[in-house]
Structures are given as C-alpha cells and as structure tokens.
C-alpha cells in the first residue's frame, strides 16, 4: 500500500485494517502522535487528513486512499508556529502527553477561523482530553495565537 504522509510517499506491507496511528508510531517511528484511548475519544492521536483533524487511532490505512496525511512532524503552517510560540510563552503543557493532539486540533481550527469565539473553540477542542487540566490555558493560548495570525494575515 502507498500513502502520502508529510508529503512523502510511504510504502507499507501492514494489514489494511491497521489504524494509521500504529503505522505512524510502530513502523515509521513518528512518535509525536500519541495513543490515549484507541476509540476516537481522547484526541491524543489527532493528525490532519487534507488539513482536517482526524483521530488516527480510528482511521484504517486502507481508508486513507489518496488523501494527504500530515502529522505534527510535517505541519509547518503559520498557525502551528504561532500556536507553538504561545504554548511556550504561556507555559501551557504540563505532562505534555496530550499537547501534540491539542496543537493539531487547534491549528486546523485556526486555518478555518482566525477569530474563533468561545463556543467555536469548545466545539473544536472538546474532542481533545487533557488529564492535567490545562484547558484554561489552552483556550487563552488559542485566542492569543489567533490574534497573532490575524496580524500576520493583514
């Protein structure tokens, strides 16, 4: 099977029903995408499929077809860069385990909407669990990053 991951063509012999997450982690060594539940419930495994956030634990490699997969290793948008800078400045992560998933959901959100209101942030981010409870900071971080994006885009 051939897949496009981070703009590289990947060949894999794995079974078609293998979730993308395990191709990324156990075969390609792309460890930033995390495992948290395996059921699409926690968002730790969030990657982009043609720019849309998807849960890689619940997406089989067979279902990907010609769509482009981007993990945080290949995500270099202005959105993710602003988010990462804010995440640093505001000391957002605690254990950090959920944070790559949070960033991938947040960057997909900011690409769609550079000025999200609170309800929009809740809707876009409620699929990403953070057991360390960093939500107050994540929300403030998204708002701050959106502001920077708007400045860049002007």
């Amino acid at each position: 099977m051939q897949l496009s991951i981070n703009d590289n063509i990947i060949h894999t012999e794995l079974e078609a029903d293998t979730p993308l997450l395990w191709l990324l982690r156990d075969e390609l060594g792309l460890n930033s995408t995390k495992f948290g539940c395996g059921m699409g419930l926690c968002g730790a495994c969030t990657v982009h499929l043609n720019g849309q956030p998807v849960r890689s634990c619940s997406l089989t490699i067979a279902a990907i077809g010609n769509n482009k997969i981007t993990t945080i290793e290949g995500e270099n948008s202005a959105q993710i860069q602003c988010l990462k800078a804010v995440w640093m400045q505001q000391n957002i992560p605690q254990c950090g385990y959920c944070q790559v998933g949070q960033l991938m959901s947040a960057s997909a959100l900011l690409k769609q909407n550079n000025n999200p209101d609170e309800a929009t942030i809740n809707a876009a981010m409620s699929g990403n669990i953070c057991r360390c409870g960093t939500y107050v900071r994540i929300k403030a971080g998204i708002i701050a990053a959106a502001k920077q994006i708007r400045v860049i885009e002007v």
Binding site: G29, N31, S32, K34, F35, I72, E73, K84, W87, M88, N91, I92, P93, G96, Y97, Q99, V100, L103
Partner: peptide, 23 residues
C-alpha cells in the same frame, strides 16, 4: 520567580521521549 518550563520545547517539537515512545 516564574521561570519558563525547561521541558516544554521538546514536548512541542516531539523530541520528548515518554515511556511509550521508547524505541
């Protein structure tokens, strides 16, 4: 004083190795 967390950069870049990331 509020010093910046030393572990955050690697937790954002993916360089941080959690137990489950050991290869």
């Amino acid at each position: 004083h509020s010093m910046p967390r030393l572990d955050i950069a690697d937790k954002l870049s993916g360089k941080a190795i959690f137990g489950i990331d050991q290869q």
